[in-house]
């Protein structure tokens, strides 16, 4: 359900309510900050020393925003987040009011091999541009239904609704923790980790973990990357925006090893996560990432392995259940 919900960057109000319903019984306090981040606070159980741990999964999805409506009713658009033009042809998008449009491209100015966003448009089936049900500034997400393939699943928004699902399930399975936990469902990750920037400033955590997707190197003729679907959640070492804190990385590895949870180590050469913003908040926060290996990231058909998601939950529950040592 959370995979199909509407929520392009800056327009997270619908997905936020869906998640709020899921978590309100799982936290001591749930609030929404000025930017729209959904913050669930769980108090620590037991004696000190406790740490304030912030967990972040982003609610927003990549999408498009209407910039111009022509007299025939075709919509020109800009991207919200990293949209690859070649993944749009033949696909559909859906606006907040439920209207669905097809992506088309200028035949004269496009080829089958090369596609550019500014040579594309959205066709909502309008006869003309008068009284368009869509306004300039309206945002749409991709529109594809969630598909269960058995071991693996496809959805338009695994990035990062799978992270949201893992975080919700972690709150559910984590019966008690010696740490004070702030589970934050952030906004605007895809346009520059903006929700995590402000929520981390507000929460002021001692340790921060982002839960997000990562690329894989396990498809035909893929780039070199030692991450594959089904081999466990990936513990991040580096991506193009940050280096995971050495102590946090080691603590996550130890939690996986002690509980016999399969894991992979991740060096991602393109892309980053909310952890990038959290680690430089205020005086600096030791930060790491638990990644869900995902094929076809930033396309309308992102694929993850169900076991990887479940093992990510186990890993987080194990990590949060014990004192965290950062050496």
């Amino acid at each position: 359900m959370i995979a199909e919900a509407y929520g392009p960057s800056g327009h997270e109000h619908i997905i936020r309510e869906v998640i709020r319903d899921e978590i309100k019984s799982l936290a001591d306090e749930v609030r929404v900050d000025a930017l729209g981040n959904l913050i669930a606070h769980r108090k620590a159980v037991g004696a000190t020393p406790r740490k304030k741990v912030m967990l972040a999964a982003h609610m927003d999805e990549i999408g498009v925003m209407v910039t111009h409506i022509d007299e025939k009713g075709f919509l020109r658009f800009a991207s919200l987040g990293g949209v690859f033009a070649n993944t749009l042809v033949g696909h559909r998008c859906r606006f907040e009011n439920g209207i669905i449009g097809a992506f088309g491209q200028e035949k004269k100015n496009s080829s089958r091999t090369e596609t550019q966003l500014d040579k594309m448009f959205i066709d909502i089936g309008a006869r003309d541009g008068k009284n368009s049900p869509i306004n300039v500034g309206d945002a749409a997400g991709f529109w594809r239904e969630f598909t269960d393939l058995g071991d693996r699943m496809i959805a338009k928004t695994m990035d990062d609704r799978i992270g949201c699902a893992v975080l919700i399930e972690t709150l559910r399975q984590l019966k008690k923790s010696p740490h004070e936990i702030f589970a934050v469902f952030t906004v605007q990750e895809e346009v520059g980790v903006r929700g995590a920037t402000t929520s981390a400033f507000g929460v002021q955590p001692d340790v921060a973990i982002a839960i997000d997707v990562t690329d894989t190197g396990d498809t035909p003729e893929s780039n070199t990357m030692a991450v594959a679907l089904g081999k466990g959640p990936a513990i991040k070492v580096k991506d193009s925006g940050m280096l995971a804190h050495r102590g946090v990385k080691t603590a996550l590895i130890t939690a996986a090893q002690e509980n016999k949870i399969p894991y992979q180590l991740e060096v991602l050469t393109g892309g980053s996560t909310d952890a990038m913003a959290m680690q430089v908040s205020r005086e600096g926060v030791p930060a790491g990432v638990v990644s869900i290996p995902t094929r076809y990231v930033h396309t309308p058909s992102e694929m993850v392995d169900f076991d990887d998601a479940q093992n990510a939950v186990k890993l987080l529950v194990a990590f949060l259940g014990k004192p965290i040592k950062l050496d």
Partner: peptide, 16 residues
């Protein structure tokens, strides 16, 4: 720390 990857260390120590 971490100047070469985005001036991250200076951001945080200067804040402190």
């Amino acid at each position: 720390v971490q100047e070469e990857v985005g001036l991250y260390g200076a951001m945080t120590s200067t804040f402190k």
